[in-house]
Amino acid sequence: MDTVTHTLFGLTTYGALDKSRTDKQTKRALLFTALLSSQAPDLDVVARITETGRIMDQMWHRGLTHSVFVAPIWALLIYALVWVIWRKKDKMIFYLALVNVIIHIGTDSLNAWGTGFFEPFSSIRISIGVLPILDFVIWGIFLGAYIYKKVKRNQSTYKIWRVAWMIVLAHISIQAAQGLWIHQEARTTYEQTTLTASFLPAHFTVLAKEDNRILVYDQTLWSKQEEPVVIESNEEEDLTPLFEENPRAEVLMTWSPFVVVTTDDGKLGVYDPRFYRGDGPMLFESIELTN
Results as ranks from 00 to 15, higher is better:
M1S: 12
T3A: 13
V4M: 14
L8R: 01
G15H: 12
A16F: 06
T22A: 04
T22V: 03
K24D: 15
K24N: 15
A29P: 00
L30Y: 10
L31S: 07
L31A: 02
L31N: 13
T33P: 10
A34L: 05
S37C: 05
S38Y: 11
Q39G: 02
D42G: 00
V45G: 05
A47P: 00
A47F: 13
I49Q: 11
I49D: 03
T50D: 03
T52M: 12
I55W: 10
I55C: 11
M56Q: 09
R62M: 07
R62W: 02
R62V: 05
V68C: 06
V68R: 01
F69T: 09
F69H: 05
F69K: 06
V70S: 03
I73Y: 01
L76W: 15
L76P: 01
L77D: 00
L81Q: 02
I85A: 02
I85W: 12
W86K: 08
K89E: 14
M92V: 11
H104D: 01
H104A: 00
H104P: 01
G106S: 11
D108Y: 02
N111D: 06
F118Y: 13
F118W: 14
E119H: 05
P120I: 03
S122K: 01
I124W: 12
I128W: 07
V130G: 03
P132C: 08
I133H: 06
W139T: 06
L143M: 13
L143H: 05
L143T: 09
G144S: 06
A145N: 03
Y146C: 07
K149A: 15
V151D: 11
N154K: 13
S156R: 13
S156E: 15
Y158E: 02
K159L: 11
K159C: 04
R162E: 06
R162Y: 06
M166S: 15
I167V: 14
V168E: 12
H171F: 12
I172L: 14
I172W: 10
S173D: 05
A176I: 13
Q178E: 15
H183K: 15
E185F: 08
T188I: 09
T189A: 07
T189L: 08
Y190D: 08
T194Q: 09
A197E: 02
S198D: 15
S198I: 00
F204M: 06
F204Q: 07
L207T: 06
L215D: 11
D218K: 14
W222R: 10
E227L: 11
P228G: 00
V230C: 05
V230D: 02
V230P: 03
N234Q: 14
T240I: 13
T240F: 12
P241K: 04
E245P: 05
N246W: 04
R248M: 14
E250D: 10
V251G: 01
L252N: 10
L252Y: 07
M253R: 09
M253C: 10
F258D: 00
V259W: 07
V260S: 05
V261P: 05
T262S: 13
T263K: 14
G266T: 05
G266D: 07
G266Q: 08
L268Q: 02
G269H: 05
Y271A: 01
D272W: 08
D272G: 05
G278Q: 14
G280H: 03
M282H: 09
I287T: 12
I287K: 13
E288P: 02
T290W: 12
